[in-house]
Design a protein around this nucleic acid. Structure first.
Length: 251
DNA sequence: TTTATCCTAGTCGCGCGGTG
DNA sequence: CACCGCGCGACTAGGATAAA
């Protein structure tokens, strides 16, 4: 499903009203004019809003929808903005953003993975550019870890719509950490022996002993993390759709 | 095993739109 | 005009995660 199938982003429309619309075959913005399940006052308000929404969709303004959709439903914007969605993941020297440093960041967008490395190209400007070129950020637990860590470390203020897959995963019964979820739904991963802890060691090896192989391995691991997020997003979207949309529409 | 953070889900009360 | 259902903001409780 796409944004054009959603109505809860409009003021005065909640889940119940949206489901009523769907049930009556109003499954697209373009069908609102034929809607007879809501009164004319509501319909006119809705159509006025949809006019603005169409404009913002046309120019690809994801921020408009990020503001209107509750986080719980942000996944509905994924199909509309996946082209410039940025799947990203950071590696650090530890958990504490006030004590530890970012070592590498992998950005995966439009099928390409770009990695920033501390001491080479990991700069505020490069991060800023990656973020501002993105319609939407996609992470796992990034709302609590990756984004705040970046904001603190590089004095950034990130307001790009951010789809944190951890919460949708929980809704469809997937929890226990990213690696565990990947295994459960059959996402392959090389470098199975590497985890966050090992990532810290790899960085130390590189930094202290100039071990380029360690850095290569870290970058490769970081890239897998980012790319796997895209696979996960596909699966999560599919499952959310079949659970929270399809049951409400006529076939 | 901890820590801060942000989520979802649930409840409550107010106000409004729609209905008869 | 009286009632019901819904949206919605405010609030609370509880669950789950990051990397080491």
């Amino acid at each position: 499903m796409k944004l054009e199938n959603s109505f809860i982003l409009a003021p005065g429309i909640g889940e119940k009203t949206e489901q009523k619309l769907w049930k009556n075959n109003v499954t697209h913005w373009d069908k609102v004019s034929q809607a007879n399940v809501i009164g004319s006052t509501r319909r006119e308000t809705l159509e006025g809003f949809l006019k603005k929404a169409r404009k913002n969709l046309q120019v690809g303004n994801s921020y408009f929808f990020g503001d209107k959709l509750p986080n719980k439903s942000l996944w509905r914007a994924y199909r509309n903005f996946e082209e410039n969605a940025c799947f990203f993941d950071i590696e650090t020297t530890g958990l504490d953003k006030s004590r530890n440093k970012v070592t590498t960041i992998a950005f995966h967008r439009n099928g390409e993975t770009r990695t920033l490395v501390r001491g080479q190209n990991l700069t505020r400007e490069n991060i800023q550019r990656e973020i501002s070129n993105s319609s939407m950020l996609v992470t796992f637990n990034g709302k609590k870890f990756d984004q705040p860590f970046l904001e603190h470390s590089f004095d950034l203020n990130i307001d790009t719509p951010h789809l944190d897959l951890m919460y949708p995963c929980k809704r469809i019964g997937l929890s226990g950490g990213l690696k565990k979820i990947e295994k459960r739904i059959g996402i392959d991963r090389d470098l199975e022996d590497v985890d966050g802890r090992e990532a810290v060691r790899l960085w130390k090896k590189y930094e202290n002993k100039n071990d380029e192989d360690a850095l290569d391995k870290l970058v490769e691991y970081n890239g897998y993390d980012a790319r796997n997020l895209q696979e996960l997003a596909e699966i999560v979207h599919q499952r959310l759709e079949s659970r929270f949309y399809r049951p409400h529409i006529k076939r």
